[in-house]
Design a protein around this nucleic acid. Structure first.
Lengths: 248, 248
DNA sequence: CGGTCCTTTGACACAGGTCAAGTAATGTGG
DNA sequence: CCACATTACTTGACCTGTGTCAAAGGACCG
């Protein structure tokens, strides 16, 4: 029996997404059951400690170095996580979407800051309770190890991008990456929707706003993409774009 | 009873490091027991699947995209892990030292290439056997999750470095990072010993050989470091260096 | 409608890359 | 022990991709 079948219908959640049957089944059903369905008792324990939090665009979720009291899972929306240097230079280390975890750390403080980019719904788990659940339910721990290992591989790709790719290669890699992430959540991948500002894109790619903007204009002029509007971009030559992203 | 106390004296290992009592106790004792000592049966199972491998400088350990048949733990020596683009551009994503894991992945192929930088001894675990051990010994899985979470934090710091720091800040950050890693293994941290070439440093920091070399010369000219020889660097003003690394 | 924020575009500057030459360290065969 | 080759590193001169500074247009909002 799949994990989500245990949840009963919730009218409010159904209003926004009829196929969902619990205020927090995204994280419970998609993330937690991906390692093999949880049994009834396990799900009950998860649901018992779960809280739902809604926040608006530009609202902080937590700040770097703040006590890490909660673990989060994005139910809906888009989140950016970033680190700052003393003088304000910013590096965005990731964009998170529904299903993604947030705030996992083995220290007692968060290692980065997190902020919503659009109206966002989060599942929140008090950290101590979450960790004792990990000990009791090895499936969860196995799942988190899989997630961490996947994130580590993505981080290494990003180091390649930041250390060795040109501005053009970075921007194209970024567009394809965002598109792939959208497709994985059953959102349209072409045209790709960018919920973040050019400043966010720049701080993710290690570039300035101006270089991001110029590079997009250049790609458009070369007929490789079409700018439907500022936040929607269509791919005009996917094969060539994939080649550019790979450094070809 | 600490994990290492179960191992019996091994003359060959003792020759190189008198305080070690088993050809592979570094990984077993330092890494595996760090999550709480393993009991006798657990240790026996680990030792039973463990193989020791010795390799020389510049020898490959495995290549990206190759079937991931083994998990490794560095017993002694220094290893670099890197990714390549089609045209040969290289990004080194990490330097590994004794105690560090290597080749952990949830895919069936390695996500990066690995190569020894100096004479290196590795503990090797057949991957399937290692993974079934993980299921049987939750302590191990918990330990690996801790390691992965720590590596993820380091990867985010490296993204900040690659995306937003100047050449000067990168080089200083690098020197302090290598020094800290040496201290953690009870090696001298000042002067710091660099087993890698300038090309490796450049490919780790997203810079060219020439920029690395020039930046070191500049730091030396400013009296911030002393170049004892090409591979040994002493810190002349640690406070100021820490400030530079932090972006101050 | 007037203000604010975001984006684009242009002109120019500079950090770091490229190309090239020279030096030092290490190893090799005679 | 010495030519000689090889590899690693440093330094200089110059170039270029991306950053900086500035201005202007457009979208959104109270």
């Amino acid at each position: 029996m799949p994990a989500s079948s245990r949840f009963t219908v919730n009218a409010q959640a159904q209003h926004h997404a009829p196929h969902l049957v619990h205020p927090c089944d995204t994280c419970a059903a998609r993330e937690f059951s991906a390692c093999g369905p949880l049994d009834a008792a396990e799900q009950d324990r998860l649901v018992a400690i779960m809280q739902t939090v809604e926040i608006g665009p530009h609202e902080p979720i937590f700040d770097e170095a703040e006590p890490a009291n909660f673990v989060f899972n994005v139910k809906d929306g888009a989140v950016k996580v970033y680190k700052l240097l003393a003088d304000g230079r910013r590096q965005i280390t990731g964009f998170l979407w529904s299903g993604d975890f947030l705030g996992l750390t083995h220290n007692d403080t968060y290692a980065y800051s997190a902020e919503a980019m659009s109206p966002t719904v989060l599942c929140r788990f008090p950290r101590q309770k979450f960790e004792s659940l990990l000990t009791d339910i090895p499936k969860l721990e196995r799942r988190l190890l899989g997630i961490a290992s996947h994130e580590l591989a993505a981080a290494q790709d990003q180091m390649m991008l930041l250390g060795r790719k040109s501005a053009r290669e970075r921007v194209v890699s970024f567009l394809l990456m965002i598109s792939d992430a959208a497709v994985r959540r059953n959102h349209p991948g072409d045209p790709v929707f960018l919920p973040m500002t050019r400043a966010d894109v720049g701080d993710y790619l290690g570039l300035t706003i101006e270089t991001v903007s110029r590079t997009l204009s250049q790609l458009k002029a070369q007929g490789l993409i079409r700018l439907i509007d500022e936040k929607r971009i269509a791919f005009a030559n996917l094969d060539e774009l994939r080649g550019i992203a790979a450094g070809g």
